[in-house]
Amino acid sequence: MVKMRRQLFVLIFVVFTMSCIFLITSIFSTYGNRIFKPRDFMIQLPQTRPLPITKESVNLTDGVHTYYLNLSRFQEEIPFLQDYQCSLTLTPSGRFQDRPSLLILAIKSHPASGARRTALRQTWATEREVKGFWVKPIFLMAQDANPRRMELVKLESREFGDILQWDFTESHHNLSLKERCFLEWLHHHLPQVEFIFKGDDDEYVNPYAVVQYIKHHGSSPFILHGNLQRHSAVMRQYKYRVSENLYPHPVYPYFLSGGGFLFPGRSVKLLYEESQRIPVFPLDDVYFGFLGLAANLTYRHDSRFHVSGLAFKACRYQRALVVHGINPEQMVKIHNEAQNALCK
């Protein structure tokens, strides 16, 4: 009799335990995802989003000329430049975001220009400290139709961590997208950047001279620095042609030659906001000039931005900020001689 009671008690206990397990399992399956999702126990950080693109026709004046950019004509002739949403495929790596005095060397490059990037990394485009500034080179790139080149770019990115690439295709007009999308990236990812140098991958740059220049002339957040082009005539033929339908004016506003210029980090927000508003012009340096005009920024010209080449003399290159038009074979020799020259 006692044995039967024990067996009955065990049976009841087993049934009760199984019922409890079944009940708990049912509760979890019904409400578990709602109650126990890990994200509900995490602090939700605010996500920084790009400003909505609200482009419009604009009238801009520099006190001498008035420039009307008609959005409907830009959308008719170059719709992709107006509609493109910046989408990254590769981003630079490293802890440079934490550096308090950060100088970005932003270098426009093409996936096919691997030899140029190699020469630059062997010379002036290396991440380092220069006279109190942390210098970080970043190559600005888009896409190429050659899949082998794209794979090599990925390998470069993994090895050097210095490539910022978007998913649009490389072309002359699309260089303006590098301007707009780079401003967007700076605004959202490097709000603390002190100065930005913009240039090309076929030039010699002297980071020591650039830092010294910033210390002497870089106190204002509203001044852009470079080789100033004053009311350049609009070309209607050849590589830099712009149609009268798109832009009927005979001259451009002031702009800095795209071969190499400097702008302060505190101007980025103003430039970025205007890039979301005014039409994207199909010439990148002129486009940046329109952004500067719309943002009410001013310019400082300096002849040491040699955007059309310079005959080589070591001491002249040592004092130069940038010299445009240097091929990869010359770069290492020129850099070494200029760095080692004893100049007064």
Rank of each mutant, 00 (worst) to 15 (best):
E329N: 04
F160P: 00
Y213L: 06
A295N: 03
P92H: 14
F13S: 07
P147H: 11
H231F: 11
H306S: 07
F290M: 07
K269Y: 03
T54G: 02
S220Y: 03
E337Q: 15
H231M: 00
H110Q: 14
R236F: 07
Q75I: 10
F36E: 08
E244Q: 15
A106D: 06
G199K: 02
V211C: 05
L186V: 03
A145G: 12
V211W: 02
P50L: 08
H324S: 11
F13M: 04
L69G: 04
S87T: 15
A142S: 15
A295D: 00
D284F: 01
M235G: 04
F80A: 10
G94K: 11
P137E: 08
P248Y: 09
L23M: 06
W134R: 04
L69Q: 02
E273M: 01
F261T: 13
V153W: 09
Y238H: 14
L186C: 02
C315R: 14
N296K: 07
Y252C: 12
Q276G: 06
H110F: 15
R121M: 14
F261I: 12
V280C: 05
T118A: 14
M235F: 12
S109E: 03
I104H: 06
F22I: 01
V193F: 09
K108C: 03
F195T: 08
K3N: 09
I214L: 07
S113N: 15
Y254D: 14
L60I: 01
S232R: 14
Y247G: 10
E329M: 01
L224P: 00
F305L: 06
R121V: 11
V234I: 12
F312Y: 12
R49E: 13
V58W: 01
P248D: 13
A320D: 07
Q192N: 15
F22W: 01
A341D: 10
V280W: 03
N146H: 05
Y240V: 00
E244W: 00
R180D: 03
P253V: 02
R241W: 02
S176R: 13
Q75K: 15
N340I: 00
H324R: 15
L177V: 12
K344A: 15
A142R: 11
T89A: 09
Q82R: 02
I107G: 05
G259M: 13
L8C: 08
L321D: 05
G63H: 09
F139Y: 15
R73E: 14
F28S: 01
W166E: 03
V234K: 13
G325R: 06
Y31T: 09
R266C: 00
T25M: 05
P111G: 06
V332M: 08
V268L: 02
L88E: 15
Y238A: 14
Y247I: 12
D83Y: 15
Q7S: 04
E244F: 11
A145E: 13
T17C: 12
A106I: 02
D98F: 01
F160N: 13
Q44M: 10
F281W: 04
K333E: 14
K198Y: 12
Y272T: 04
R148Y: 05
F96K: 07
A338H: 02
C20R: 01
S171T: 14
G265K: 09
I278M: 01
I163D: 04
S57K: 10
V251L: 11
